[in-house]
Write a protein that binds this DNA or RNA. Structure first.
Lengths: 225, 225, 225, 225
DNA sequence: TATGAATGAGCTTTCATTCAT
DNA sequence: GATGAATGAAAGCTCATTCAT
């Protein structure tokens, strides 16, 4: 009986995953409003009604998808935060991870936009997930400011939002789709700008230059990570 | 006769402006798809049909709104590009201007998002306007790279997209709505990060430091908040 | 004063005629439902509101147009009926006249169709006009039957409707538009069929005869009705 | 499974037929433009949306109805053309059939009118069906002319259009609705006029013949008038 | 439990008619 | 009188959701 149930439960999970994958596809192709329950059902190969056995509504379906995606990010983040590295390197790794997930599917960008633009009342769980990520990143930035690694004169919130803005921009859609820039390079440039700005490194004093040591560090650890 | 006509024309313009304002409101609140012609009409206090005397369709209405907003930006940009200042200062002024416009109404952010996310076929005029702005900013960045002011190792496109990403983020919506940061400070921080990155300035030289003038302007309470 | 009034009245009449002409044009091009008051007004070069000073409604406008057209037919008919000719020749002339009017503008066909197909409640005047024409033609046919010129076994109503059906068909639209047949020939063929049928003229024997069986089947009660 | 499917399919067909019947009713009562999907739905007793599960659009619904009706005519025509009878008898049978169908529901008349008057782009299938019927009738008439049965001096197209005009007139609507004439008689009269004209048959023996003198009279006066 | 036809609220758009100027 | 912007009822159509099978 238990086995039977767990088998059924397993099948249920599998179907749910299939639905979420199909939903992701359509969502990314058409956007929230032009995504119809019919099309999702069709892609999975089930009837519309079946979707409603897994999800209470279209919104619920999308929210669930969002949560799963966020969970992946949260898990990766947990690992990165535990690393025995300096803040800047941990932050660098985190950026790598986010960009990697974005590169796979632009779901993160999509979520971020939808959750802001539409009224789609983020339910408490999703809100919490966003908050956790938010807090963790703020902590990282604060730690860096306390350590003298990051500029203490910048409000941490502004630092965070700037980073998210840069990452969640059209960068990946536009530049990657045109095949102009390799993903790794793109991320490296991004981090370079975020950490050091676009101003040219001072030739004489090396203010903006990276020391040879630092360069090695970055190219091997931050950038190539 | 001329007076009569100009009076009617004036009224027409006024009503059209009212419609566009109402549309802007609803658009910002609900997003394109959840904005209904009914609600716009209701807010202006006219009948639905009246909207169609000014605009051929919902899309036309929104596009017109977009064009007006972009025109303001384009005009300001024209002035700024003519300034007899160094590239970094001109770019700084441009960022000021964009942020000022965003602060007034978040229409720019909205436009930028909608124009990317939705298929809403940007008509050729709007496309051209976007391109002009894009080109001008790329020129500015290239000039800076040639002058040795900006980091020549960064691809100009990436520099541009990063800037736009930072500006068009939730920053203004989130931080300004919470009244945590004064607008001027917010812009200053933003530029600081974009130009110099979040890394702490090297102790010796002042490369990453804010000018004395700038420092004074930044109220310490906010920075330390 | 009277002169002044009559001048105004004259202008009024002229404008009304212009409106009716424009209406006719659009009606013929697009059909009743796709004819908009706006387009009529535009073609005349007046404002929509002006139309309503002449006609109470769109339906009234069209009805008035119909009446004028019918009046022309009625007047011509009056002359023809007075002719000192045999019935068949008078009928022939009448057919000529109707076809001539149709050829000028297909308004007659249009009227006939609209007045049947749409519910457009024919107002009493128009009804009366139709009736008058109807009666006159029936009289002509009856006279012919009494004179032994027309086949007395055919119910007059059927004779009339057949004639109208033939005339008001696609004939003029189709054949004339393709320039296949000259108008005069077309009318001649039409009358030939109506008067003599399509059967080949008997060279020797019974070309025009009905079989005995058919004759028996025609119930005399109906024919004499 | 098959049984289950066929049951569903059957129900589907039934409902579709109901919709088409209701559509036919309203169409006949009000004409294409004044027929609303709402009213059709109301008469069937279903929601508006249901109609769109069967037909892609209002036009599609009507076109489908037209095709079904034409198909019935085409099938009957096929049989008639195969008959081993003289052309005039086959044509006579064809007229019988068309009139029979018109008598049942005036859909044929309606179709014929709408297809001419409205721009309703007859889709290629319907166009083809119309053409087939057209061609078959022209062939029949030509055959008759070649056989010396029909008057070879009349253009076949004119013969055809005259016939259609007579049949598709108000005859059935008007006369049948007044119950003045029995259907069979009506058709017989119609054919009598079409085959032999309204002119009285020659007095002496041959019921329907014109004397040579009369013939001359008509051909010179009526026809050449 | 899966199905998919049915539902109906709600959307964009049209246009005859009105009425303040 | 002439004007044409404003009106608003009504149309065709969509799609998330329900529910009988």
């Amino acid at each position: 009986m238990t086995i039977h149930q767990s088998l059924k439960e397993k099948q249920r999970q599998e179907r749910e995953t299939l639905v979420l994958q199909a939903a992701q596809e359509v969502l990314l192709e058409r956007g929230y409003h032009d995504t119809s329950m019919s099309e999702i059902a069709q892609r999975v190969g089930v009837a519309k009604g079946t979707l409603y056995q897994h999800f209470a509504s279209k919104e619920d379906l999308v929210l669930t998808l969002f949560k799963r995606e966020l969970q992946v990010l949260q898990d990766a983040m947990k690992q990165i935060l535990k690393e025995q590295e300096s803040v800047d390197i941990r932050l660098s790794h985190l950026v790598d991870e986010i960009c990697r997930q974005i590169a796979k599917k632009h779901m993160l960008i999509f979520m971020w936009r939808e959750s802001i633009d539409t009224g789609m009342e983020l339910d408490s769980q999703l809100q919490a997930a966003f908050n956790t990520i938010h807090m963790n990143m703020l902590s990282l930035l604060d730690e860096g400011k306390n350590n003298g690694v990051f500029n203490a004169m910048l409000p941490t919130e502004v630092m965070l939002e700037s980073l998210i803005g840069m990452i969640m921009s059209r960068l990946f859609k536009t530049l990657r789709s045109g095949k102009k820039v390799r993903h790794e390079d793109l991320v490296r440039y991004l981090k370079c700008i975020y950490f050091h700005g676009i101003t040219a490194p001072a030739s004489s004093s090396q203010a903006y230059q990276l020391s040879a040591e630092e360069k090695d560090n970055i190219s091997t650890e931050h950038i190539n990570a």
